[in-house]
Design a protein around this nucleic acid. Sequence first.
DNA 1: ATAAAGCTTCTCATATGATGGGATGGGTGT
DNA 2: ACACCCATCCCATCATATGAGAAGCTTTAT
Lengths: 269, 269
Amino acid sequence: MRDGSPQGTYKVQALDRAFAVLDLLGESETPLGLAQVASSLQLHKSTAHRFLMVLERHRMVERTSNGKFRLGLRLFDFGNRAIEQYDLRDRAQPHLRRLVAETEETAHLCILEAARVIYIDKIEPARSVRMITRIGASNPVHATSVGKAILAFLPEEKANDVIRRIRFERLTSRTIVTAEALHLELEKTHRRGYAIDDEELEEGLRCIAVPVLDAQRMPVAAVSISGPSFRVTAQKLPSIANHLLQCVRGICADMGYISSRSRSSSLSA
Amino acid sequence: MRDGSPQGTYKVQALDRAFAVLDLLGESETPLGLAQVASSLQLHKSTAHRFLMVLERHRMVERTSNGKFRLGLRLFDFGNRAIEQYDLRDRAQPHLRRLVAETEETAHLCILEAARVIYIDKIEPARSVRMITRIGASNPVHATSVGKAILAFLPEEKANDVIRRIRFERLTSRTIVTAEALHLELEKTHRRGYAIDDEELEEGLRCIAVPVLDAQRMPVAAVSISGPSFRVTAQKLPSIANHLLQCVRGICADMGYISSRSRSSSLSA
DNA sequence: ATAAAGCTTCTCATATGATGGGATGGGTGT
DNA sequence: ACACCCATCCCATCATATGAGAAGCTTTAT
């Protein structure tokens, strides 16, 4: 009973509804009026209104000049508090910046949660076209280089726990969609020392990632470089991987993950 | 009736409680157990437990390995969505970076909400000791350079609305604690073109700020440089102000705030 | 080993507190 | 001026959250 938490029991209607409101506002590109919120969520006007007023009091939503609602900055506050614990982010930034300067492609810093990877930082090269990812967003482990990088260096036990939770959705023609194929890939990844996502998440996008291992050699995060396939070519992979490894080495040092005789075996280029 | 919202009416007990839980976890440095949460908030164990379970289902809180609770990464997601609307932040970053490189002191980007300024970005010089501010946090307008910078360039009307809401708390011996004194200071600020906080928020901390004006010349944000008083000396202020003005000019250009014959009058050095 | 204390998880009868029908009023466009 | 749409507000009803308490589980003390 210590595994997943399939039991959807424990309800507090009001909370579910409130979060549905926040979700809705978060999804919407533009601020929404009361009526829109109410009808989208099948709530009655008065109910939606009451919720919005309470949420506004807590600054979880705010109103635009024309009276419409959007997410409030309190959430921004909470979000930053939530991420603070992972001071990994702050410490990693300078290293990521150097990495981006070297490779001229977009770098991401991710951590694992359940069976998804969450983007906790992103650095883009000045000249590049913007990527669509948003910090805070998440993607499935099985279709990302960062996901595979972390999984490949997790102990069997833990890795299997995660893999069991994956819903292998197909995202492109190359997405890995079976646990067996994933296991094979992870083995290759471990030997190679870095993970590759060859258009498995998105057509035309190639990524390469390296895990950040803590003092106990447990992967706590991963750093990736992503770019259009025509720029991130197969020949360039080893060179990029080298930059990544160096970057991660710097992060580990900064985090105080003593390298002892450390990452020589499977993680040196 | 279009002014403040003093009416604390509109209650949804469940929501207030849930946010109290999040607040508590956000304040706490370390993760808390169920019992701690329940007693801190005077909730009964079962109630607190139910809330935490629901919050966990929504990933608003997560559990550490030893079963304690802390803020969840869903909040990080929401926070980033909330801030996304202000794409000001993204666009301003490179300019702030340059500013920090030039001045070698910490830069902040802030916006006004009610009678407080919210830090939406912070860039620190590599060598500096870390400042204690956290992105997402807020400070009262009357005791910050950014607050005064924005207020000083707001139309009378609006500025007074804000000032009326201020609870003039004293934070240091130099804090401005009366509306009259603040009005005088704002006038000086407007003429000068930049705002100064001379240890009014915190002993030993001196800041200087310039507002970011949109196409209608309305201040939408402010950029500041903060540093220890012994480094940010009176003589250096004009020079720093110049860097700030240049930085802000860049931001405005990037945001598409057409400068027309613009910021020549009161805001050029 | 065993007991005791402390904390979490779970169940259920109760009344508290959220609900939504509907009335009111303000704003906008025709 | 009229009609429409939308936000705000009120209040009787009952669905919902509540909290006392029992049962598990883990850790610490004896």
